[in-house]
Design a protein around this nucleic acid. Structure first.
Lengths: 121, 121
DNA sequence: TCCATATTTAGACCATTATCTAATTATCAG
DNA sequence: CTGATAATTAGATAATGGTCTAAATATGGA
């Protein structure tokens, strides 16, 4: 991951509504949630949320797909993983007192990773 | 760590000069570097850098101490660790496909780092 | 004390961001 | 096609952010 991508992702998360949106979508799991439901949940105007959603998507932290009239947003786990890897590699480089043994783990392709296909939400 | 602190830290890192400053100071190690040297290294005006340094410090990512005429800045490992922990706990919660086993490690104080027997990269 | 060095603070300026309202696009049901 | 619903885009606006120059503060040395 390049620095500019990392900055984009960090900036995307550095705002309350967006950080809450991302958390909500991580909780929601791979199935995601429609934009309107997110807006309702977070008590944000649809137009305003739409602006934030597009920033998160551009930063590679969300994905979207249309499902009939709704647009479903879901956390992009791989994107978040890339950010975590960047932070551990580039910022903790050689300093286990910060991240412990995170860099090695961040490079492994996710362990067994059980299928989370709408089983726990 | 509270959300507002996390946002402050994320915002602090979401800017090129600041991200580079932080990286530089992590590389520099616990002894840190004087502000002027950082400015020279990154080719930034002292006044501008000072602005960024104060933001990083307010975010809990740097510490400073005066040493005669210079002010030495050093990465605050604990602060970065808190941010990493926040991200792994609050944003990857229950989703190992993002952070793998990071949350547990982020809470441990810096494990013996199991010897990387694989060295598969 | 006076001067030089290291850094921060003050003030101005332009760019970017977050939010709102209103208008637009896309989809479905009839 | 028409009307209703879901979401985005456009345009305006107020707030914030990043940078510069100039001035101020802190320290050390002659």
């Amino acid at each position: 991951m390049e620095m500019s991508n990392a900055i984009e992702a960090l900036a995307a998360l550095a705002q309350e509504t967006r950080l809450e949106t991302f958390r909500l979508l991580v909780e929601a799991g791979p199935n995601g949630m429609p934009a309107g439901e997110i807006a309702r949940e977070l008590d944000v105007q649809p137009a305003t949320l739409s602006f934030h959603l597009s920033q998160l998507e551009r930063a590679g932290l969300l994905r979207s797909r249309r499902q009939s009239r709704q647009i479903i947003y879901a956390a992009d786990y791989e994107g978040m993983r890339r950010l975590m890897t960047f932070l551990t590699e580039k910022c903790c480089h050689g300093h286990p007192e910060i991240c412990g043994d995170l860099p090695r783990l961040a490079n492994t392709r996710c362990p067994p990773a059980p299928e989370t296909q709408g089983s726990d939400d």
